[in-house]
Design a protein around this nucleic acid. Structure first.
Lengths: 212, 212, 212, 212
DNA sequence: TATGAATGAGTCTTCATTCAT
DNA sequence: AATGAATGAAGACTCATTCAT
């Protein structure tokens, strides 16, 4: 990378980093371009060399933040060992593991959760599974298909819709319990949520063409 | 009601109505106080006689809109006949009926859905079940307890949490499918959603103290 | 006084009292008509039955406040005994006594002092000596002429101008020292001020047509 | 100075000049930011680039105006010749000269006088003698100490307090006479004022440690 | 006489965006 | 590529005053 290229990259990153911190702490509408460039140590005009407006930077940050989260969850999943006795059971456990990992991370970082929940235009599912304009990474859904291929005896009636249901259920209920303790605490929610997720998975598993 | 009281009521309503229409069509941040009062045909100062700011009127509208929706659903439910053979089954059917009614209404009025989904600070569940500052109505949860009392043989392990899970699942998945047709169409979603809801209900039903 | 008359009087007084307290504590420009009528417990429109605007009520309060102050000073002066040996000396002592009384009162009530100093359109002298639109009381100047008549041997070259000089000097210097301790403290100022006043008086006394 | 610096300086000056003229003619509270920027030929936002609000510009103008006045008086004083026979007498004459110069200037420019008298937060003395946030100039008090050093036989008991008394006396009495001709005309006041000032000075002069 | 709902002009202030340097 | 001074539209909100009741 040339010297100029490097400088450009530094400025871009400074802007992204400053925005993220300000958005997280003050909220987006309370953050002005002035705040961002000041924190980043660049001039106002420079902002417009890299972004169209505040909302473009927001969208990039939401996607980036969520991707990092799921990627880390996926990496942790790889490290874990699961009993291989029952393919269906294992699949269920892995799903719960991943959901649990992501929710625990969000609970640890409530500012991030707040940022995500307030700026998720199209639901939590998309962050996890859908390709995106600013994104490039491998998606969770790919992993699911891989797992399914590895276990020819396990059939999911409709794996994509099932995931959609699970992810949105987990997202919607945990956002409100973590941030507001309302209507119950997150700790109270978890067993019930995972039990519901298991119920949904079970209702989607077909063995030898017969629904369980 | 005196003449003055009546006029006040009219102004209040004009402001609420204008705001609703503008919020629905232009979005809240794109709507100025100027727009609202002009459409309502009152003076700018008058707005501040009735509301602290734009966000107070928004909150009132969100609550009012959602309550109307659930109340209508509840009224339709009362009109409906359900086969009484099986208490558990009947309970399941009624739940599906209500959810279905609300979602169908939202599908018919996408602007309203958009307005609700963008301004629901604490999740869809609260609109349906929780008391609210600006609200006074009987809540759905009351009906559930009544039904449960009527059927002593049916026990729900945790009715409130179960409803929370169901309502949030329905809300989150239908918002995105109705508004974006993404990741699937609403029509594709419905059977899967209802099947998931049934799975959740089943996993909560206990008969004679034994979980099914 | 009739019942209606009495009620009117009560409202007028409530408005004056509320205004005074608000002006004193918040300042005039920070006080709105709304504040005044609310504190007085009357309707907004009622204010305009009694006063043209905020500034009319301010002017009345300034005059009333200052008159009360000088009247009390005058009454204290009457109670006091002065050695009668020397007419000129006695006159000097009485003048100092009165000035001192007023300044001590102002030092005790700094909010009042602030109110007066900020709203004295035409100098401190006028409060003490000049007739005023809203005033009716006997003025200090009358007393001076009486004292002079009682002492045919003492002549003041120009009693009215002398008083003007003394009162303005005392007002201007004590306002700033009491409120700001600047450039010196009020306690430091007093001996110097009174010495200067005595110098001015001496330079105005003529005995048998010869200046002293 | 660069081109940009120059432009900034021009804008700043345009704003100061416009404000001054508007404050002088319409009064401060009657002058809006809109008026100022329009007269200055700059955009509204530009005002806030240079000043926090209307009151900051007012304070700067008051200080600037007063300093210019005293500086001119001081310069005129330097040109003047005084008989050197008597150090004490000369000191007295110089003091009167300066006071007279300033008061004559104020009489010529009543709008300026009005502006100063209405916006002098801490008395006239401070303008003449005290350092100030927006000020940098040499102060009158310095001159006094210099004169005193040059005349070792003349001792002022308390030069600073004496000046305070004189300046406030002159300010308070001349403001009201010039602006209102009340209680006497300025022309009538002058001999009496200067006679009082001389009396104050005399009462402060000590020769060889003995008060005169 | 008293009320207080209604008015709407008027003010401050912010801020995204531009463009000459 | 980078700057940051300048812009001015846009918005929120206040408040003295009026007037129908």
């Amino acid at each position: 990378m040339g010297k100029i290229e490097e400088k450009k990259f530094q400025k871009l990153n400074a802007l992204l980093k400053s925005s993220y911190e300000l958005f997280i702490t003050k909220g987006i509408s309370q953050t002005s371009i002035h705040d961002i460039v000041q924190k980043a140590g660049v001039a106002k005009g420079t902002f417009y060399l890299y972004f169209k407006d505040k909302y473009e930077i927001r969208d990039r940050l939401v996607v980036k933040t969520a991707e990092r989260l799921f990627l880390k969850g996926y990496q942790e999943l790889q490290k874990e060992k699961f009993a291989e006795e029952d393919a269906a059971k294992m699949f269920e456990e892995k799903t719960i593991f991943l959901i649990d990992y992501v929710l625990e991370e969000l609970q640890k970082n409530k500012l991030m959760l707040q940022f995500l929940s307030k700026n998720l235009s199209r639901g939590f599912f998309h962050l996890a599974l859908e390709p995106h304009e600013y994104s490039s990474e491998v998606k969770l859904i790919d992993y699911y298909y891989k797992v399914l291929e590895e276990n020819p005896t396990v059939h999911l009636r409709n794996p994509e819709i099932m995931l959609f249901l699970i992810v949105e259920l987990a997202g919607a209920t945990s956002f409100s319990t973590i941030l507001e303790n309302d209507p119950i605490s997150f700790e109270q929610l978890k067993p019930e949520l995972y039990s519901a997720i298991r119920a949904i998975i079970q209702s989607h598993i077909e063995v030898d063409g017969h629904e369980t």
